[in-house]
Design a protein around this nucleic acid. Sequence first.
DNA 1: CAGTATCCAGATCGATACTG
DNA 2: CAGTATCGATCTGGATACTG
Lengths: 132, 132
Amino acid sequence: MAKSGLLETCDALCETLTDAEDALTREIVTRLADKWSLWTLSVLAGAAGPMRFSRVMDQVEGISQKSLTKALRQLERDGLVTRKMFAEVPPRVEYAITPIGIEMLEQVAPLWTWAAKSVHRFQAARAKFDGG
Amino acid sequence: MAKSGLLETCDALCETLTDAEDALTREIVTRLADKWSLWTLSVLAGAAGPMRFSRVMDQVEGISQKSLTKALRQLERDGLVTRKMFAEVPPRVEYAITPIGIEMLEQVAPLWTWAAKSVHRFQAARAKFDGG
DNA sequence: CAGTATCCAGATCGATACTG
DNA sequence: CAGTATCGATCTGGATACTG
């Protein structure tokens, strides 16, 4: 698989990566797009402290238990959130965003902001394309 | 559907969007994740000028005709690339990146660079998670 | 050359039911 | 409470064959 491309600055860096590293980089960026990961992460970022599973589920509207579990596991595996389990009955589990998770959101914010600002240009392009 | 969240600066902007605009914003960002769109766009960005379909296909290694067609159509629909068809036999079609497309790549580059630089932290997190 | 059409495998996600 | 297990609808992408 070839390196990622993009612009020159980024390109040069990407060329220094092994194939495994390049794949992981792509995977991390890709995670931005899946339906729930980013939203879940941002909910944890917005909280004052750690959150229980069910609190997260309340705030990420529309998510199923299954999808939330999966999203949280992935985020945990990549070091973006922490998971703390308490040996109690009923069980309590607390999730919190990590410094790397916050970094990640800080990287995404400008892109998202740009997209939001550009939304009318995209709408215009689509109207033109769909119309004729 | 709730607004996107993220950090405060971005949040404030996102709150001003209609639901349709918010959905489109999300869709644009989401396109980063699909397997070929970004790569295709970056190939067009790297070229000196417009490229024919088959030239793009050569450079985006491993892509199928079907996937390339789909990726290019989506990029065109969102105004990120242009498509010019020449009434010749055999047919010639030329694709080129637009200013908005370049803008988009410029937004993505820092994120990608950050991910590439952080790749060892992600590997470490995974090793820890997978190990125990 | 630049597609379209068709079929197929695998992944994703929601809904539901069940459990330590 | 915080999951896991299972099923089914939907989507994605690859391979192949065909066409203006």
